[in-house]
Structures are given as C-alpha cells and as structure tokens.
Computed example of a mutant assay.
Amino acid sequence: MIKVGIIGATGYTGAELVRILSRHPQVELVALTSRSYAGEEMAGVYPALTGSTDLNCEDLTPEEVMDRAEVIFIALPHGHAVPVATRARERGIKVIDLGADWRFRDAGTYEEWYKVPHGNHKLAARAVYGLPEIHREAIRSAGLVANPGCFPTSAILGLAPLLQGGYIDPETIIIDSKTGVSGAGRGAKVTSLFVECNENINPYGVAGHRHTPEIEQELSALAGRAVTVTFTPHLLPISRGILSTMYASLARPATEAELRQVYREFYAGAAFVHLLPPGQWPHTRWVYGSNNCHINLAVDSRTGRVVVASAIDNLTKGASGQAVQNLNLMFGFPETMALAGPGLCP
C-alpha cells in the first residue's frame, strides 16, 4: 500500500482526490490538511464522502505530512507549492502538484504570466508535465509531476494528433473553451454566486488567460516549432465540465476519414480518450464524474479548416482524476486503477 498525503484537501480538487483515492486498492490515505477545517471530519466537510473516509482534516506542516507519506498531492493556489515540493524531493518523496508552479519548463514563463517569483528554476526544468497520453513514459520515472490545467488538458488532447502529424497550420489555431463554475474553486467570489452566473454565459481572461502559455508550450513541442494560439475561456452556469471547440486551417488537403484514422492511431491504447462516431459531438454531461475525454472532428471543405471538439470533467480528467492517473504510472499500477468507468447517466 502506498501512503498518500493531500495538502489542501478541502478545496474541490482535494475533495475529488479523496473521493477517488478512497476507493484505490493500493492507496492508504494518511494525511488530509486544511487550515479552515482543522479538527473536522472530512466527511463532515463533504457529506458525500460519508462511508468512504473516516479521516479528520489536520492543520499539519508540510514536514509533518512528509513524515507520514511516500507521495504527496499538493492542491494549493499557485505560488505555494515550490517550497513544499522542493523539500519533498530532497527527502526522496514523490510529488504530484495540481497547481501551476511546475508546469513550465522555463520558470521565467511562469513568473511572467503569474506575476510571482518561482524560487527553484532548476527543479522546474526537471519536472514532468503530467499529461499521460503525451508523456506517459517520462511520468513513469518522474519524482515531480506537474498536473496539467483543465483547459490545457482539453485543448492539447483535442489538437495533438493534428499538430504532430503536420495536418494543420499552427499559426491559425483558435481555441474556444467553456467551463463549469467549479473551475473557479470553492472560495467565495461574486462571479461564482448563483444569481451572477445562472442564466448567463460570459468570456473572461480574454487575450491573457494564464493557461495560454501552458497550451502553447505543449503544442509547440508537438509541432516541433513555436506555436501561438488564440484562446478564450467562457463561464457556463453548470457545476462541472469543459467543452473546447478548436479551429485551424489545414496545412495540406485531408479528408475527415483520413483524420479520424490519425486520431485512432494516436490514441491507440489510451483508455480514457474516446473518438466519438461521426456526427456525434461531445457533451459535458457524458463525461461528468469520469476521467474520460470525448473528442470528435469535422473537415469544413468550404473553408479549408478542421473543427475539433473535446469534452472533459474539469475536476476529474482536468484535475484530480488525471493526478491519480499519474500516480498509477509513477508506481507501476494499471493506469486505469480506481478511475475506470463511464460518466454519470443521464
């Protein structure tokens, strides 16, 4: 059994980690940290976890968590994971960070977009970007994994086969993404209030969202050249889910049937990525609560563009489920352990 600690257990991603790991046959949860709910039962903070865990939340120092755990998940706001992960790696403890602190190979990019000093550029260059469908082998031997952002997960999975195969012009990529309100976290915010977001949809972070350079970093690696994208997220009045619709001009003539075969070959053996039948476009409802990513595409012969849509649950494949997928790879477990299964029906 692998002893696991979660630092920041009572946010939405932390709670989702507890939900998934409580049913993992090779994991023993040994520490759940929270300052706001210290001393309270985790199942009291999230009653849906009743019967799944009897652990209390504790206000532990990172060192105290490290004394108990072989691997730690960090579910903290950006800027807080660097000293924790640095010390954990010095002690030989594996780390999966769900925040942004380790996602950039060049920590200077992180500093530019997140407006805080990083603190460990050398370790950042060695962290592995935790998108298993792209970096599976590197994750297996990693000591520090940077779990991807939710928007980047949906966008990169949707575009990767086309970019690696040279089928689209990288200079023409437009990414239009829509997310549920849980992506904003559990903290009180005016924009997350029911009366503010209900019966409403709005763009935000236009021409400057912090997930943009993360998307560009990974797409550039796939394309073998620098890629700059136009990315615009929108807030939907739903709890969970991301739908990304992506547009790009074809770099050479290709039929839809040809591109569908490219996707089937690229994701062969990828248990969580599913290419839907022609004409069946992804719905966020279909992946709700699952670690799946549903994808479909169409070639617009009139404009010479390809349209790709991908749907994920932002808290599962977009965060905690993917983090457990990384854990499984790091410790040699089946990649689908504790994660297999469809979304909720209906």
Rank of each mutant, 00 (worst) to 15 (best):
V4P: 01
I6V: 15
G8I: 10
A15T: 10
E16V: 01
L17W: 00
S22N: 03
Q26Y: 09
V27Y: 03
T33N: 04
T33A: 01
T33R: 00
S34A: 14
S36I: 12
E41L: 03
A43D: 14
V45Y: 02
A48R: 04
S52F: 08
S52C: 05
D67P: 04
I72M: 13
F73I: 13
A75P: 09
L76K: 13
A88K: 01
A88Q: 08
R91F: 03
R91I: 09
I96A: 01
I96P: 02
I96H: 00
A100K: 14
T109M: 08
W113I: 01
Y114E: 12
N120A: 07
K122D: 13
K122M: 02
A124L: 04
V128W: 00
S141D: 06
S141V: 09
A146L: 08
P148A: 07
P148C: 09
P148K: 00
C150V: 14
G158A: 06
P161N: 05
L162C: 03
Q164D: 10
I173C: 06
I174Y: 09
I174M: 02
A188C: 08
V190H: 13
C197T: 11
R210M: 05
H211F: 04
H211C: 10
E218I: 12
A221G: 13
G224A: 11
L236H: 07
I242L: 15
L243Y: 12
P253T: 06
P253D: 13
A257W: 09
L259F: 05
R260T: 06
V262Y: 05
Y263F: 05
Y263T: 00
H283W: 10
S290V: 11
D300H: 15
D300I: 12
V306A: 10
S310Q: 01
A311L: 07
K317Q: 15
S320W: 10
S320I: 06
A323V: 15
Q325S: 06
N326T: 04
L327Y: 05
M330Y: 01
P334E: 05
P334G: 13
L339S: 06
G341E: 04
L344K: 11
L344F: 06
C345H: 13
